[in-house]
Amino acid sequence: MLTIKNLHAGIETKKILKGIDLEIKAGEVHAIMGPNGSGKSTLASVLAGRENYEITEGSVTYFGKDLLEMSPEDRAREGVFLAFQYPVEIPGLSTTNFIKTSVNEIRKYRGEEPLDAVGFLRLMKEKMALVNIDQSLLSRPLNEGFSGGEKKRNEIFQMAMLQPKLAIMDETDSGLDIDAIRIVANSVNKLRNKDNAVLLVTHYQRLLDYIIPDFVHVMYNGRIVKSGSKELALELEEKGYDFIKHEVSLPEEA
């Protein structure tokens, strides 16, 4: 589904990603862990098409297409979804209206009829139950005044509504209490199937108690320095990120 080869990206003169290689197949869940500032969000953003990063080297292929050539909206329409680490607040734009526009744009791209009000409401009801989100939240302006947990829940709800092929979740667990984490994990597990894949960026391994990943990658200083099975997450939890820093000898700032 997704092949990342030797990806280098940065901002202005700052190099952030320094050669990422990653292969994700349909049906898989990959977790990326790593200390703050290692480049996890940058990778997630570059995949979703945030334009302020400059790609200096490497390639990303998504279902055989050059992902980096596509606009952010076309990536979304092709099934890429980023659950933001910091979802944006937009006062004046109702959450429901926004999601309806989004769902119908994606349907249009796929050559499907737009959903009318009734069809949309039906889909919304179904997904609301799935991710356990309250109607009252959705009739408010987009993320305005939402608590951290509510914003994350809204991201998961949008993901459920859009049914992406590749879901990238950037620290969706951060700042959530254990009950909220369980709900997020449950939702993701319900949405998992053999045709889609999840890239889970997380700082802590506790989310991985609930979403069992097929692979765990450790990112440090713009590179994936270690990959393994879910046991790697436990090892990290036990020893802390310092053990990575000691274990891998890295050339300092290239």
Partner: peptide
């Protein structure tokens, strides 16, 4: 810009 990107990442054109 951040809001524009957020909306585009949900399939809306610029």
């Amino acid at each position: 810009e951040e809001a524009l990107f957020y909306l585009r990442s949900r399939g809306l054109s610029l």
